[in-house]
Amino acid sequence: MEHELTWGLPVILYLFLAGVGSGAVTVSASVLLRGGGGGFGGDHFSMARYGAIIGPFPVMIGTSLIVLELGRPDRAFNLFKVVNLSPMNIGSWLLLLFMATSVLYALTFLPSFFASLKHLSRRLDLVRRILAFVNVPLGIGVAVYTGVMLGAMPSRPLWNSPILALLFLVSALSTGVAMIILARVLFHRKSANAEARHKFHESAYLLTASDALLIGTELMVIFLFVLFAHLTIGNVKYAVSVILPGGELAPLFWLWVVLIGLLLPVLAELVFVIPKLLFHRGYSAPGTIEVAIAIAVLTGGFMLRYVIVVGGQITGPMGL
């Protein structure tokens, strides 16, 4: 059966890229505030730097896609003419503020940028921490907004769930961690120093354990999302059937989102996390495994948005 989709790949990519970027910056800022700051060096600081530098780009690319999707890019500026409490207006201001502060935050991790600004470089750590404090709530806000934007449409019952925003938030944080893991493996310079290698693996353990916890949370939220819709009578119960066994999008959802994007990555992560967590052994995961896990998590994050956006359209609109 063919369906006419008003929102296609540009919107799906926007939701995915905004989630990845905001998640990466939020994780970076959290790591920095919890002890990863203070000068250039240190593996925790390196984690924060990867997330800070990478994070703004997906958000800016995704926002550009959604602006171009409007057909007339100048329409995007209409959202800033009036300040009100509509989801689109709040989300637009959140995106604008986040892009500005995340770019400034990223610049504080580039020592060459501040080389000619000696009066600022002395206070660089303070500036970086202030921007980190600002970017945590803004990053969470952008991640939540991607779900609120869909949930604010009551005529699309699959989207009209109070749990969707939480699901997109947890997914954004998980894919943000995956992006940082991927960047660390691909761009890390291997050291012959045993202590340096040990610290690198210890910081990798923090990321992997955090991602395993986030994936576990995401699986629980998905369960609540499906349960909430299934126990609701009427249009919402009908809409969620599209991802249940026998539904039109069920193969995509259970194979690509749940199995490949969540279950397989978390099981692989636990293989390396549990020995250290329970038996205090050293953590050392092969780089190829870390890359495979990160790619699987990112793929699952994209497919989650794909299934939700498409599913909401082929099961609606419904009468109000």
Score class of each variant (00 low, 15 high):
residue 279 F to K: 15
residue 37 G to R: 09
residue 13 L to R: 01
residue 217 T to C: 12
residue 205 Y to W: 14
residue 68 L to Y: 07
residue 128 R to H: 06
residue 132 A to E: 06
residue 80 F to D: 10
residue 70 L to M: 15
residue 101 T to K: 04
residue 65 L to H: 04
residue 10 P to M: 09
residue 178 A to R: 00
residue 163 I to L: 12
residue 261 G to D: 09
residue 273 V to I: 15
residue 317 P to R: 06
residue 93 W to A: 03
residue 8 G to N: 10
residue 167 L to A: 11
residue 58 P to Q: 12
residue 57 F to C: 06
residue 141 G to L: 02
residue 83 V to I: 15
residue 301 G to L: 06
residue 99 M to I: 11
residue 138 L to Y: 03
residue 101 T to G: 02
residue 46 S to M: 05
residue 203 S to C: 11
residue 74 D to V: 14
residue 143 A to H: 01
residue 312 G to V: 08
residue 240 V to Q: 07
residue 171 S to V: 00
residue 178 A to N: 00
residue 129 R to E: 15
residue 153 M to K: 10
residue 89 N to K: 07
residue 170 V to P: 03
residue 96 L to I: 08
residue 99 M to V: 10
residue 261 G to M: 06
residue 20 V to R: 00
residue 201 H to P: 03
residue 18 A to D: 02
residue 219 L to K: 03
residue 269 E to S: 05
residue 280 H to W: 14
residue 116 S to M: 03
residue 188 H to Y: 11
residue 231 L to Q: 13
residue 111 P to W: 12
residue 229 A to D: 11
residue 129 R to T: 10
residue 236 V to G: 01
residue 3 H to Y: 15
residue 312 G to S: 10
residue 115 A to R: 11
residue 146 T to N: 01
residue 45 F to Y: 15
residue 147 G to D: 03
residue 267 L to C: 12
residue 32 L to P: 09
residue 4 E to Y: 14
residue 308 I to R: 03
residue 121 S to P: 01
residue 68 L to A: 11
residue 299 T to V: 11
residue 182 L to M: 11
residue 21 G to L: 01
residue 93 W to K: 05
residue 71 G to R: 00
residue 315 T to L: 08
residue 188 H to W: 07
residue 284 S to T: 05
residue 78 N to C: 02
residue 244 L to P: 05
residue 119 H to D: 14
residue 190 K to E: 13
residue 138 L to N: 01
residue 51 G to I: 00
residue 93 W to Q: 08
residue 212 A to K: 04
residue 220 M to C: 06
residue 200 F to A: 09
residue 27 V to M: 01
residue 16 F to V: 02
residue 290 E to C: 04
residue 113 F to V: 13
residue 173 L to W: 00
residue 99 M to Y: 05
residue 43 D to G: 07
residue 192 A to W: 14
residue 83 V to G: 05
residue 128 R to S: 09
residue 220 M to R: 04
residue 225 F to H: 12
residue 259 L to T: 05
residue 181 I to K: 04
residue 57 F to W: 15
residue 289 I to E: 13
residue 117 L to P: 00
residue 206 L to C: 00
residue 179 M to T: 11
residue 162 P to H: 03
residue 312 G to W: 04
residue 208 T to V: 15
residue 222 I to F: 14
residue 21 G to E: 02
residue 191 S to H: 05
residue 320 L to I: 13
residue 262 L to D: 10
residue 276 K to M: 12
residue 116 S to L: 02
residue 195 E to K: 14
residue 253 F to A: 12
residue 320 L to T: 13
residue 214 L to N: 07
residue 73 P to N: 08
residue 32 L to R: 13
residue 289 I to S: 13
residue 182 L to K: 05
residue 199 K to Y: 13
residue 106 A to K: 04
residue 74 D to T: 14
residue 20 V to M: 12
residue 314 I to L: 15
residue 213 L to E: 06
residue 175 T to C: 03
residue 56 P to V: 02
residue 137 P to K: 08
residue 21 G to T: 01
residue 202 E to A: 07
residue 294 A to D: 09
residue 291 V to Y: 05
residue 299 T to D: 02
residue 292 A to R: 10
residue 184 R to P: 05
residue 301 G to M: 04
residue 159 W to G: 05
residue 129 R to A: 11
residue 300 G to C: 06
residue 127 V to I: 14
residue 245 P to E: 02
residue 105 Y to N: 05
residue 220 M to V: 15
residue 130 I to V: 14
residue 195 E to S: 08
residue 41 G to A: 10
residue 120 L to D: 03
residue 318 M to R: 12
residue 203 S to P: 04
residue 269 E to Q: 14
residue 53 I to F: 07
residue 32 L to C: 07
residue 289 I to M: 15
